[in-house]
Design a binder for these strands. Structure first.
Length: 702
RNA sequence: CGCGAAGUAGAGCAGCGGUAGCUCGUUGGGCUCAUAACCCAAAGGUCGGGAGUUCGAUCCUCCCCUUCGCAACCA
């Protein structure tokens, strides 16, 4: 789209179950904010929406964890996140929330329209139900023994011990985490969005039309999803926290959070329109609107596949681009909330922004570093030492220093006023600098349009570097020494300082989208109003008029001291230790004895002794062995993840204990009909559980 | 396993068919207006490994190794 009438820019809705860290900030918020500030400077019609995502099972879970209500959780984190974004100069036009009535209405209308148009399917399935709590259980609420690794702490969706994704049906001894009781199976109906029907559309839209203008990582991800076969996705679920499904027969059901959350962009736009007496409709329905979603890579599938399908069915416009960022690691390791290896936005705000020598400059320092290392093409690394280097040797030494020396010299050599430009005596250096200023505009503009924020910011800093080089060549402080014998030399000084001052004004315009607080400080020093920052002024050389007197210089940035970064690194490492200590205890107490079960539960498991008659390694799998086990009445194929511990030839003829009534399961394409019981010592070494003396195959174990 | 992304100077990254580039760091020199800032120069890489296509490959193709992500009721 070459010249859209209006822009709607979104940043991923942060989930209101905890504070967000700098990885989120670098991924979805800062890039969007830069883009929006640039568009605003161009006087474009742009709305920037965001808000808290407040539904889904994780909210009630977090409430239980903190011993409070879901409502209290979302109120707490909504306010906290909103505040943090504000403290870091995020310029949302609205920061909304999905718990607002206007959002519920919008999401329900969305569902109704799709349902009435016959675009949704219903399916009846059996799901676990907790009779005591009288509720269907989300996968996360079911705990049991992992069929893969035998850990008794697996959840219905995933085993945290071995990492395997599970479905609740696979769990051995499923237990409700709400009541501790064994849940029963109960029939329930759900609505599904059949993505498969839209494969052709997605292929054309993404893999054809956008294969060149979207980031390769984004197209790659989408391709992976499409090639993998698009399954129907449930859009409802049995839960009492969320947007009620607007149908009589759907009592007790809510919209699945992934369905309602992106609609939050629309409801936020509606609320913004009400607040500002505007019409929201063109922003979502007019073809001349450019919609851009800024997200992290975990969100690609929702914003490139699922939400666009929803939008298409609903008759809305599609995103023009989804410039997703990859992930930001921290000091050599993945950021992780559960391991407490992270830097929360809040922590930075407290340790830097709110300190006495903090303020807007510290906000901009973080924005600078995060933009400079933004994971635009691949995962990148936040290093405290890198942060210090970037601030001290680029922001302070190159950019800040250029502005500062310009101001000091201007006061010393030009009486604190903007000097005249003597066009007759412009030399090559002057002309080259003028050319650079004009070029910079085109370059930065083009990079921003392509969402290459890191490079665009580099161009800005590089322009100030060119200012330093220029000044070094012109050496006005040397020229000034010859003034006594050659008063004409003042003209050369005037030209140099005039150009440096105009360059500074241009730098303010260019840096503004990235570092708005810095731009503000520069405006103050130049004694000019915000209007100077209009993008149309960029590249011009008459921004500060001759004779205008300017303020005394003030430093734009302070340096980051060594002690500050060593403190942060210490803090990070000690946080990690604190998390590890209590966790160990927890495992201990829990692993000694599992929760009590009834004899009936035990009796449901059929254990028999079998003899391994053959064993072979499974092709292209590190851990798997394919075993044939003689159980007396039959010989079964069992696939077991023990290849790292035993060689196939070693174990033929050995007797083992087998769970014989475990549901069959395919691994590497081979159906496994049972499970071998193993004992694991604390080093992770496995041993077979077997009778002391050989017994006949098929003997019962009880 | 599969799919996707990535492996390039001490560190962080760019380039993606035609003598390897940027920032920081290191070393040497210059300057002194400037936040021990600035400017100039140098050292430093057989572009993960192997094979192929090509007149020519870091860049294309194939295989292998390593890292990260995804695999769909995970929001």
């Amino acid at each position: 789209m070459t010249n859209p009438k209006r822009y709607l820019i979104t940043s991923a809705l942060p989930y209101a179950n905890g504070l967000k860290h700098v990885g989120h900030l670098a991924g979805a918020y800062i890039p969007a904010d830069i883009y929006v500030r640039y568009l605003r400077a161009q006087k474009r019609d742009v709305v920037f929406v965001c808000g808290s995502d407040e539904h889904g099972t994780a909210i009630p879970i977090q409430a239980t964890k903190e011993g409070t209500t879901p409502r209290a959780i979302i109120d707490k984190y909504h306010e906290a996140m909103k505040q943090d974004f504000e403290d870091l100069s995020m310029s949302f036009d609205i920061y909304h929330r999905t718990s607002e009535p206007i959002h519920h209405e919008t999401a329900q209308e969305f569902f109704t329209r799709l349902n009435n148009a016959g675009e949704l399917e219903t399916k009846e399935t059996e799901q676990y139900f907790d009779e005591e709590a009288k509720t269907f259980l989300a996968d996360r609420y079911i705990k049991g023994t992992c069929p893969n690794c035998g850990s008794d702490r697996a959840f219905g969706d995933q085993c945290e011990t071995c990492g395997r994704t599970l479905s609740p049906d696979e769990l051995i001894n499923p237990v409700s985490t709400l009541s501790g009781k064994t849940p029963i199976k109960k029939k329930t109906t759900h609505w599904y969005l059949p993505l498969g029907k839209h494969e052709q559309f997605l292929r054309e839209w993404i893999l054809e039309q956008h294969k060149d203008d979207w980031r390769s990582t984004v197209v790659g991800q989408c391709k992976s999803w499409i090639e993998g076969g698009l399954q129907s996705r449930a859009v409802t679920r049995d839960l009492d926290w969320g947007v009620k499904v607007p149908l009589k027969e759907a009592e007790g059901k809510v919209l699945y959070v992934w369905f309602d959350a992106p609609i939050g962009y629309i409801s936020a736009t509606k609320q913004w329109a009400i607040d500002n007496k505007k019409d929201w409709k063109p922003y979502w329905q007019d073809k001349d609107t450019k919609l851009v979603h800024f997200v992290g890579k975990d969100n690609i599938v929702f914003h490139c596949i699922i939400f666009p399908v929803m939008l298409k069915l609903h008759g809305d416009i599609l995103p023009e681009n989804v410039p997703a960022n990859e992930f930001l690691n921290l000091e050599g390791d993945k950021m992780s909330t559960s391991r407490n290896w992270k830097l929360d936005m809040r922590d930075y705000i407290i340790d830097f922004v709110k300190k006495e020598n903090g303020g807007g400059q510290c906000v901009d320092m973080l924005r600078y570093y995060l933009t400079q290392i933004a994971p635009e093409t691949k995962d990148s690394e936040f290093m405290w030492k890198g942060f210090q280097d970037a601030v001290n040797s680029e922001l302070v030494s190159i950019f800040g220093n250029f502005v500062n020396r310009t101001w000091v010299l201007m006061h010393k050599l030009c009486g604190g006023k903007v000097p005249q430009l003597h066009t007759g005596i412009l030399d090559d250096n002057d002309k080259i600098l003028i050319g650079e200023i004009e070029n910079a505009k085109t370059r930065i503009e083009s990079l921003l349009e392509q969402y290459k924020f890191r490079e665009a910011l580099y161009e800005v800093i590089d322009l100030s570097r060119k200012g330093n080089q220029y000044m070094q060549k012109k050496e006005p402080w040397i020229v000034a020494k010859k003034l006594a014998e050659n008063p004409e030399a003042q003209k050369s000084i005037d030209n140099t300082m005039y150009l440096c001052l105009q360059l500074t004004a241009n730098l303010a315009i260019f840096i503004n989208p990235f570092l708005p607080n810095t731009a503000k400080s520069m405006l103050y020093m130049m004694k000019v109003v915000d209007k100077l920052l209009d993008w149309e002024n960029a590249g011009k050389l008459k921004l500060l008029s001759t004779g205008y007197s300017l303020r005394e210089p003030q430093l734009l940035f302070r340096k980051i001291e060594d002690t500050e970064i060593t403190e942060q690194i210490e803090k990070l490492k000690s946080g990690l230790k604190q998390m590890e200590e209590p966790k160990k205890e927890e495992t201990k107490t829990e692993s000694v004895v599992k929760s009590e079960i009834q004899f009936d539960d035990f009796a449901r498991i059929d254990l028999k002794v079998g003899t391994i008659v053959s064993a072979e390694k499974v092709e292209k799998a590190d851990k798997l062995l394919k075993l044939s086990v003689d159980l007396g009445f039959e010989t079964r194929t069992i696939v077991s993840g023990i290849a790292l511990h035993f060689k196939p030839e070693e174990i033929v003829g050995k007797q083992v204990t087998v769970v014989t009534n475990l549901a069959p399961r395919k691994m590497r394409g081979i159906e496994s009909n049972g499970m071998i019981l193993m004992a694991e010592d604390k080093n992770g070494k496995l041993q077979f559980l077997k009778p002391e003396n050989p017994v006949s195959p098929g003997s019962n174990v009880s």
